[in-house]
Amino acid sequence: MNETLITLDNLSIGYNNQAVLSGISFALVRAGFTAIVGTNGSGKSTLLKTILGLLPPLGGRISTASQSARLIFGYVPQFTHFDSIYLLSAFEVALMGTYGRVRPGFFIPHSERDFTHECLSAVGVDELARKRFAELSGGQKQRVLIARALATRPDVLVLDEPTAGVDRGATHAVMEHLSRICEEVKISVLLVTHDFAAVRQHAGQVVWLYESDVFVGSAQELLTPELMAKMFERVSTPGDRGIY
């Protein structure tokens, strides 16, 4: 049985005291791969930001395995999140992952720089280290951001639609890297995605958000053709709440 890192217990999430979703309960375990799926506006990103501590929960609680040591999150936002005006190389972007361990006013030690190169190599983009981040393709940017998240030495790797806007080949490569990292480094992976094929192939646990409902189970349980057909019927006829 893998160690539980985070437990969400009857969590309510939302903005400005307006709940988007309530009654969310699931756990993230070490070396586990969890996918959050759902339609646009269903609260996927809000849930991710609440887990990361960027938004306060409106109710319920998030408890971590260790009360004494802070869990470290490696966050991979969507690559479109960044302004191209910054003249940063892929290496400089990835190096930011180490900033949490370097005190203000101190230079970044060589060991951290070497580790950043290792992280870039782990996702297969070390040869792009000196290239300008803004000039990379979507898939390359996404892998640099995964390297940055790995450079934080995370307990949990959190990814917000890492394959959005990325071509099929690059999507496959990104997902393969994630799956391998999850197993090798024994970190928990939590990702938001619309890619059901990737979820079916890699995720051990699926959290499906639909309107105000939250469904948690394995990919085999939730992603059956019958249930998916029912779900998409509901999406196509939003007035009909149906029975799930």
Binding site: L52, G53, H81, Y86, L88
Partner: peptide, 22 residues
Amino acid sequence: GLFHKELLLVSFDRELAIILGK
């Protein structure tokens, strides 16, 4: 000069800065 990396981080990616505990 001394705090360039912190000032750059909060300008470039505020969310990452918060997650890193800055």
